[in-house]
Design a binder for these strands. Structure first.
Length: 781
DNA sequence: AGCACGCCGACT
DNA sequence: GTCGGCGTGCTC
């Protein structure tokens, strides 16, 4: 007899282990590891989805095995998860401190999840679906079921659906031609002639000029039939793109290319300045491996996976490309996933989660902009795509390329140690393009009452460029910065009632919003504290800057791009297209405008406030600011016209800003490494963050100390534990947050200690305690 | 999660 | 006595 080990889809500590089920005889030959199943679970035998992770053969059915429940239903004909993916989930679990089922589900499109329902039936055969009942009705029906007045059937159904389109095909041309319609039936005659004209074609039923009754009549006469053909929901993405040929690599690019294809021994760190043509190297490398019959995986940050970016890959590799990012609907994601699964796609281009794409025979994995923090998922399972990429490259003996103009310190340090091989691109691929000139404006010496956000120099430069019909990009580094409302009289700042944070002003809706819990309230007329009518608006959101600029230059057309203007589905693209088409003079936005945009007519980039990211309570604050300034500077002078960059700052002496001006990654790396070494931060130390939340602050503190103690006891003297300290935003959603940061180098007991912390949260006395463990956290705010 | 079991107070 | 409230513990 065969039995199966199954991970059930109930993400809880208590159920986070394989459950054993009998495989019914009739399913025995069809069942494979990696398939989804429905299994009866718990006392009521309700159906839940599960994933088979192991199949065991039992020659004799013992008492122990015959008592096992049976798998109720197989959901797949072929496994949805490969052996490799099951292995990845195992490996992942050692450092993400999440449930196995969450790891497994991170690899599957959400359409493969099941919907659950319950069917109540009485003796007369009346039926009620639980999902369609109100809460009171549900309670009543449950009670009646307990009294055996009703029977209960558990239902589970996979959400999986494929889009099909119906086509008419004419069965027999001659027969149709000879078919006589009655004289009065003009419409039928018309339809008949239409069908004859389109004989041999697949005629879509959709948008047909003839009614359903017409179609039915001809079907009933046995003249035509309707066929359902599965169609791809993402088809449209690919059709519009025209093919493109490979460009010739320059000497530097060629060298990098030759290295990458020569060995899979070590990962490559491809360090190339903005405009040095990294993407073209990727395209060549991918083409090389495709020619060898292998596949390729390319990750890009979500934000830069614009249609232009996808198009570049589709243009080069056509139908073989699958695109995966969060902008796709669930159906579209599923279709792309299936394309990969059925081996129709051999190049996967996608954001973070695409690292799990079920491609086989991987030749190369490329992570572009590898320093981007978006490669780390900030909700459970908290994996880093780079770590998964290392595992997959090992499994497939594939080349791994990490590309960036400003590599993360972690990666660059590994390259210096020889764990990665460093490849450099120092020239701009377009030789006509010269590096932009970067200037720093010291805002401390600016006294400008009407326009606090703009220095004289920046205003002059904007006017100068616009007079020449050139375009300007202005960036507002909004991180940790937002506009707020304060009372001029007593200094009172309106705060969120649930979170310890000031509310952000939104002028378009005339409301105060909390960016953490979503609380919305009106703007008070009088100060809630002192009743004075002196409520004033402070800080500079993009809206405020836009207004300021519009007052200074009323004739200028400004496009604003931030979270508020890009909320709708294609807003992002539309704004960029408008700007690219020259419909506006200035593009004003938050950091989302810093990434990968290429507008040849832009000759000035202004950074309104370079400082705001600098003083955040995060050891990566300087690294982030430096990266951002380097990136945004790269937006100027992409073509023949010379570009200028102006950085406004209150900290002109700060090394991140000075070195960004010099465009000097090398020196920044050295300076930052010194700082990290002195304070024992990555890449010298590994980090784990433990976040503890409770609605009662004193309990949060007490538990935080307990947990810190528990960890401390199991670590060596060399490990350093910071905290517990309140989180930078100490209260959100009516919970108090505390954090512990563990810095360590080699600690064999750490994983066990952290698992023990998780065990602790299972105790009933800790029911209201929330603990999150984040290995190598990327964000501290 | 969601279901059963069990212990307690309020009620026919 | 017994119905139904909710706290507790378990699910192959």
């Amino acid at each position: 007899m065969k039995i199966a080990k199954i991970i059930v889809d109930i993400p809880l500590m208590q159920t986070d282990k394989p459950f054993t089920y009998q495989i019914p005889k009739e399913l025995s030959a069809l069942t494979e590891v990696g398939m989804r199943v429905h299994v009866p679970f718990g006392a009521g035998n309700r159906l839940v989805q599960g994933i088979i992770v192991e199949i065991l053969e039992h020659l004799i059915s013992s008492k122990a095995t015959s008592g096992l429940k049976k798998i109720a239903e197989l959901l797949d004909v072929t496994p949805v998860l490969t052996k490799e993916q099951l292995w990845l989930a195992d490996e992942m679990r050692h450092h993400v401190f999440s449930y196995k089922i969450s790891c497994l589900k991170a690899m599957l499109p959400s359409l493969l999840n099941s919907n659950y329902d319950k069917l109540f039936q009485d003796e007369k055969g009346n039926q009620w679906y639980s999902s369609k009942l109100s809460d009171e009705e549900k309670l009543e029906f449950t009670k009646r079921a307990a009294r055996h007045e009703l029977s209960v059937t558990y239902l589970a159904k996979s959400k999986e659906n494929r889009k099909v389109e119906k086509f008419i095909s004419v069965l027999d041309h001659e027969k149709l031609a000879l078919f006589e319609v009655k004289k009065a039936a003009k419409k039928r005659d018309e339809f008949k002639r239409f069908l004859l004209r389109h004989f041999g074609e697949k005629i879509p039923v959709k948008n047909l000029a003839f009614s359903h009754a017409q179609v039915k009549f001809f079907i009933d006469q046995g003249l035509i039939e309707i066929k359902e053909v599965e169609i791809s929901r993402t088809r449209a993405l690919f059709d519009a793109v025209s093919a493109d040929k490979a460009k010739k690599l320059n000497e530097e690019q060629k060298k990098a290319f030759d290295q990458i294809i020569s060995s899979v021994e070590r990962p490559y760190l491809l360090e190339g300045i903005t405009g040095s043509g990294k993407t073209e190297v990727y395209l060549h490398v991918i083409a090389h491996f495709l020619a060898l019959g292998k596949t390729a995986l390319l990750l890009v940050p979500e934000i830069s996976l614009t249609p232009q970016m996808s198009e570049r890959f589709i243009a080069r590799f056509g139908d073989q490309v699958a695109i995966m990012h969060s902008g796709l609907s669930d159906g579209e994601k599923y279709d792309e996933w299936r394309k990969i699964k059925m081996q129709k796609a051999r190049v996967v281009v996608g954001a973070r989660s695409a690292i799990f794409a079920p491609v086989d025979q991987i030749g190369v994995i490329i992570i572009d902009e590898e320093h981007e923090t978006s490669y780390k998922q900030d909700s459970s399972p908290r994996y880093h795509a780079r770590d998964i990429a290392l595992l997959r490259a090992k499994w497939h003996h594939a080349a791994l390329v990490l590309g960036s103009a400003t590599p993360s310190l972690e990666s660059r340090a590994r390259a210096m140690k020889g764990n990665y091989q460093l490849l450099r691109l120092n020239q701009r691929a377009n030789e006509a393009a010269v590096l932009p000139e970067v200037k720093i404006v010291d805002m401390r010496s600016q006294i400008n009452d009407q326009a606090a956000n703009f220095s004289q120099l920046l205003l002059e430069k904007i006017r100068e460029k616009l007079a020449r019909n050139e375009q300007v990009i202005l960036m507002l580094n909004k991180r940790g910065y937002s506009s707020f409302v304060m009372c001029r009289e007593c200094g009172f700042v309106v705060q969120c009632p649930n979170c310890d944070i000031s509310l952000t002003l939104h002028m378009d809706t005339r409301t105060l919003n909390c960016h953490y819990c979503g609380h919305v309230q009106g703007i008070p007329q009088r100060c809630p504290n002192c009743q004075a009518k002196k409520i004033r608006y402070y800080g500079s959101g993009t809206q405020k800057v836009q207004e300021e600029l519009e007052q200074l230059m009323p004739e200028v057309k400004i496009l604003r791009m931030d979270v508020d203007t890009t909320r709708t589905k294609h807003a992002h693209e539309k704004i960029l297209k408008k700007f690219g088409d020259g419909e506006a003079d200035i593009l004003l936005g938050t950091q989302m405008i810093a990434k990968g945009l290429d507008f040849p007519n832009v000759t000035l980039v202004g950074v309104i406030n370079a400082d705001t990211g600098l003083n955040l309570p995060d050891f990566r604050a300087s690294e982030r600011s430096f990266e951002l300034l380097m990136q945004v500077s790269g937006r100027a002078g992409r073509a023949e016209k010379k570009g200028e960059v102006l950085i406004q700052t209150f900290n002109p002496e700060h090394y991140a800003i000075k070195l960004a001006k010099e465009q000097n990654y090398e020196r920044f790396y050295e300076a930052e490494m010194k700082f990290r070494k002195n304070l024992s931060y990555p890449p010298y130390y590994f980090t784990v963050q433990v976040m503890i939340s409770h609605k009662d602050e004193s309990i949060a503190i007490q538990k935080a100390y307990e947990i810190a103690d528990l960890i401390k006891r199991q670590l060596s003297e060399k490990a350093k534990i910071l905290g517990p300290t309140p989180r930078p935003i100490a209260r959100t959603h009516n919970l108090f947050h505390y954090q512990i940061l563990v810095k360590y180098r080699f600690e064999t007991q750490l994983e066990a200690a952290l698992n023990e912390v998780l065990e602790l949260t299972q105790l009933k006395e800790n029911k209201e305690l929330r603990v999150i463990i984040d290995s190598e956290p990327q964000n501290f705010i």
